[in-house]
Design a binder for these strands. Structure first.
Lengths: 192, 192
DNA sequence: ATGCTAACTGAACAGTCGTTCAAATCAATC
DNA sequence: GATTGATTTGAACGACTGTTCAGTTAGCAT
């Protein structure tokens, strides 16, 4: 996973992988049918990890509370597995068609929860979104970007990052967030 | 550029590139020193394109107006060159160190304008951001995500996409956007 | 037609790729 | 200590990699 994340699937040889785990290339084939299956296993296991962990962390409540839970989960989970997130989004194009379809389906399952939250919130009038579908993709992209600059020994703790991103997402969806004091108005001229 | 964008630098052979332009592999070496230089040229030319075009489109004004200009420029420019954007962000790891440093510097020049806008806006109190540096990266990530789903024959026109993303960005930075009617309050309890 | 230059071909080079497999090694049981 | 079964090695396979280059082709000025 580490090699794929840093160098890319196509640029990593079976001999490099073997060397990384202290073995000759041929020995790898006792554990994987071929290189493609190895990539597929890594991605499938990761996606299942994400879905299982999310299932466990999921909770009912207002769309705003669910959105906060989703955003902080997504960041927290992937800050602990930056390599897996990188591979899952950058190596999709190296999957054979049937494998791609499977991973894509799992990814969609995960992102569908976010889309549902945004749709619910928009329907209830507590979010202000033109297009929940695109907002879903935009938010996921924004959150995923964190793995490109995050360093464990950097100036920010995981919880800081979660809060910063949550703040931006909350405002981005136009949440009328009365409960905790910060306010955002939706209707034109509602104040002015 | 198209091959690199769709298959990845490491997965594309010089023979494939040659076939795409109707020539034998050897002929390519009249135009590029080697494969790495070809990638470098594509990326350098693109980054220079971006910077030149941005320089031309740049304008003074309030941070809010400058932010709107930047966001719509970024989306519009890259929707016309999705392959170039994909390559510029996904193939950074395939650049040799000195090439990487050059491209990285150009990229930073470009993103620095956004960071400056966000810092100015925050200093003037018209944006509400905890961390302009991270907000810059978050916004760029969000905007770049558009190339992963955009299809020229899709349901949305370029201008629609610009407006949707601009709406999300404007809210994400917590802009107090009184001028055009939509309002967003920053201070806790300002309305309630 | 001739000469000149630039462009291209097609074969070849030395490596590396993913993958296979007989032979060697290891660990555990009887 | 012998036997068994699982693991690993190390060499080999054919295909493909980026790159080079002598030889051919094409276009143009004389």
């Amino acid at each position: 996973m580490r090699l794929f994340a840093h160098l890319g699937y196509a640029a990593v040889s079976m001999r490099q992988i073997a060397a990384e785990v202290g073995v000759q290339a041929g020995a790898l084939y006792n554990y994987t049918a071929d290189k493609q299956s190895l990539l597929m296993s890594l991605m499938e296991l990761h996606m299942q990890d994400v879905l299982d962990a999310r299932q466990a962390a999921r909770s009912e409540g207002t769309p705003l509370a669910r959105l906060e839970s989703f955003v902080k989960f997504h960041i927290g989970f992937h800050l602990a597995r930056p390599d897996a997130l990188l591979v899952s989004y950058m190596e999709l194009r190296n999957l054979e068609p049937e494998n791609f379809a499977k991973i894509e389906a799992l990814r969609r399952d995960y992102e569908n929860e976010l889309e549902r939250i945004l749709s619910d919130g928009t329907a209830q009038g507590i979010f202000s979104l033109d297009d929940p579908k695109i907002a879903t993709l935009a938010i996921i992209s924004m959150l995923n970007g964190v793995v490109h600059w995050f360093r464990p020994d950097g100036r920010l703790e995981q919880v800081d990052i979660e809060e910063i991103y949550w703040g931006m997402v909350r405002r981005a969806v136009g949440a009328t967030d009365w409960s905790d004091g910060s306010v955002c108005c939706l209707d034109k001229g509602a104040i002015a």
